[in-house]
């Protein structure tokens, strides 16, 4: 089976994730969209690893997963902190630093 199908699938999922970041106002849903984009990139990594026939792509996907886990922990802690002070999880509410 052609690896291009996997890459097209990863492109579609990436685009949906990007659309989610653009469209959704809830910070948690926007965050889920970012996770979706990271997963799409991982799918492309795994596909490339299979095409080239070495495991470097899989190692890269592994590192992406590790970084995504760390990012989720810190990002969700930030969302909880913002929710405590502003009582809202909307990305529009946190505009204190805007000039």
């Amino acid at each position: 089976m052609s690896p291009n199908a996997y890459l097209v699938l990863s492109g579609i999922i990436f685009s949906i994730g990007a659309l989610g970041v653009l469209l959704r106002r809830n910070a948690i849903v926007a965050f889920m969209s970012i996770e979706l984009m990271l997963n799409a990139a991982n799918l492309a990594f795994v596909t490339s690893a299979r095409v080239w026939g070495n495991l470097d792509g899989q190692a890269a996907a592994f590192f992406v997963m590790v970084v995504a886990a760390a990012e989720v922990v810190v990002g969700l802690a930030i969302i909880v902190t913002i929710f405590r002070t502003r009582n809202s999880a909307s990305v529009d509410e946190a505009s204190l630093l805007r000039w």
């Binding site: 089976m1 052609s2 291009n4 890459l7 492109g11 299979r50 095409v51 026939g53």
Partner: peptide
């Protein structure tokens, strides 16, 4: 992205 990625690999899958 679909147009780009659908033509990305002309090589055979090594496995």
């Amino acid at each position: 992205l679909v147009l780009l990625l659908s033509n990305s690999f002309y090589v055979q899958t090594n496995g």
